[in-house]
Design a protein around this nucleic acid. Structure first.
Lengths: 339, 339
DNA sequence: TGGAGTTACGAAAACGTTTCTGAATATTTG
DNA sequence: CAAATATTCAGAAACGTTTTCGTAACTCCA
């Protein structure tokens, strides 16, 4: 079962090795009985074709690079899972690379992947700067950006409609009777965040609400930053009945700060997140949130990447998916008196 | 920047392509000035070596297969992250494959990886059956099992000392004054679970405690199963002051059931987990648990795999790491009267 | 200055496939 | 039944590298 090549099979079957190749690839230029004889010999000898050699001549590795900032992030690991499933269903395998949210590493990884002759790259970018930073590579290798909204960039991307997501979030809180909704989290830095903030502002405008923000508009998206910012926030007087957190991780930080300061959610105020990472559905967390359809995101990402791979002149495509609200128990309806 | 080969460089530099190869590989059989001239041309032409072609002749792809049941599991994604970091530091990339805890898929993936000529495989197995099931492949390709304790199998593995982990868990609860500790979760099916149960039993014996189990000894490790089993359990009278859950996911299920039935933790009973997945450190969860040192696990796994890869006749190695207790807020000391 | 030893490089083989070209045999057709 | 056509296979080229082998050209010492 070790290192048996197509030549060994050919010798054993008494044919030339090109004939074996034809038998294996299902070419019509071969008689049925010799094909079956060869297939039989292949089975007996435990022949496994050498994909590397095939890649050389076919000029296609059937490999996709998956470059992300860190699989240990629950959002990314979920995406990675579905991307692998979808890719394998299409006959591809994926090479996983963690960039650590570092633009230089990201570049290095692109070079590495290009050297490895991957057929395409699925990129969960470090940030909006990635597009600029990777520009020279993008014309060498089919790439699809996922998660980040590239707007009018000349490159394929798949993302959720962050603007609309924020909008329906505000609508939901409004429907529950909330009239003072604080937006918590980044408002610029990435298009994702910018669009969410814009959607929030637009909904407020349309519903006649006064937009409210917390002072630090550049905080990171980690739980810890959410926690620190929330601590600051809770030291001040509350003028809101609901908080709309820009990400679930931010919301988790809020939860932690609230816990420490004996603030009850949703009794003292409602909390709405964005993303629906796995954490959010855990017992005692039960975060109401706007969901990114991860499986669909992954599926569409792979599909539009492969479209580009298989059709040189396919150009780029922008796919924007609809987010949906998932209700759990971090938001409550306000009594009529306050509405 | 597209498809420039070593021959193109050679032509541009006015040398044979073997000379270019020598310049790139740092061979001493070349004069310093031609080397530098060639390197310069390489840079100008944006030459990137074709790793696939190199793999063919070197008979090494510098690729490792990573086969696990699902990266969307927090334990695995954490491990995957560190495995990638460690592998890349050693000059390897990893191909990620999700087996879905399906033995047939696992086999298929092994065959696929062997066809792809990966240098070795890191396997987070579907279960203890994997060893038997994969036996024919294991002699074809260097493999290291991680997480699962293979005991006296003739194959490399890296795992935590599950027996000892359970033991120190019981010791800890005993120190807090608990004398009635219920063991919650699987007791057989995987060596991991078997060893944890054995460690629990041994500690009870040594400390003069009566071991207690819940009836269903074959439940799965998911949150949902933990939840269902806990619901059953809480319908009965409590004879314990602490529960030792076999896995953090089981503990999460317990938390959920307790929440629903208005049982408070740690006031009504203490809860101790095992694994220290990321979830466990979240606000409102704050699970005290026995930690598996993931980073170390990953690092040792890659190291012992590469040892096997680089030295044909290295044989196998068994590495067992020490778990540690991490205290959060799901356990409390019992008042003296009860101790 | 001539032969031995060293240095620097070109030519060619090899890695394991796929596929193109051509030829031998089998089959059909006028 | 001969000629045209189809079918089936062998041989060889190609993919882009690394490395072995061979050989010019150079260096060194007598």
């Amino acid at each position: 079962m070790k290192n048996v090549t197509i030549k060994d099979v050919a010798k054993a079957a008494g044919v030339s090795y090109s004939t074996v190749s034809r038998a294996l690839s299902g070419s019509p230029e071969i008689s049925t009985d010799t094909r079956e004889r060869i297939l039989q010999v292949c089975k007996e000898m435990h022949y496994t074709a050498n994909t590397v050699a095939r890649s050389m001549v076919m000029r296609s590795t059937k490999l996709l690079g998956l470059i992300l900032t860190g699989v240990n992030n629950p959002f990314m690991s979920e995406l990675a899972y579905h991307i692998d499933r979808q890719a394998r269903a299409r006959g591809y395998n994926i090479i996983l690379c963690n960039s650590g949210r570092d633009l230089d590493q990201e570049k290095e990884l692109f070079e590495l992947m290009i050297g490895r002759q991957v057929d395409g790259i699925v990129l969960l970018p470090s940030g909006p700067e990635s597009y600029e930073s990777l520009h020279p590579y993008l014309e060498c290798i089919p790439t699809v950006f996922v998660g980040e909204n590239l707007r009018d960039a000349q490159e394929s991307y798949v993302s959720v409609d962050n603007y609309r997501g924020a909008y329906i979030g505000v609508e939901y809180l409004h429907r529950l009777g909330h009239r003072n909704i604080l937006y918590f989290g980044r408002r610029r830095g990435s298009t994702t965040h910018q669009l969410r903030a814009e959607g929030y502002a637009a909904a407020c405008q349309d519903l006649g609400l006064e937009p409210q923000y917390c002072n630090n508009t550049f905080s990171s998206t980690s739980i810890k930053y959410g926690y620190q910012l929330a601590k600051q926030l809770f030291a001040q007087e509350r003028h809101y009945t609901a908080i709309f957190a820009a990400t679930d991780t931010n919301a988790l930080g809020i939860l932690q700060a609230a816990e420490e300061m004996n603030i009850r959610i949703p009794e003292d105020f409602s909390l709405l997140g964005f993303d629906n990472i796995q954490y959010s559905s855990l017992p005692r967390i039960e975060l109401t949130t706007i969901e990114q359809p991860m499986k669909m995101l992954a599926s569409v990402a792979v599909d539009s990447l492969l479209e580009k791979v298989q059709n040189e002149l396919a150009g780029y495509s922008h796919r924007v998916l609809m987010p949906t609200l998932v209700e759990r128990s971090s938001c409550r309806a306000l009594p009529r008196a306050e509405g």
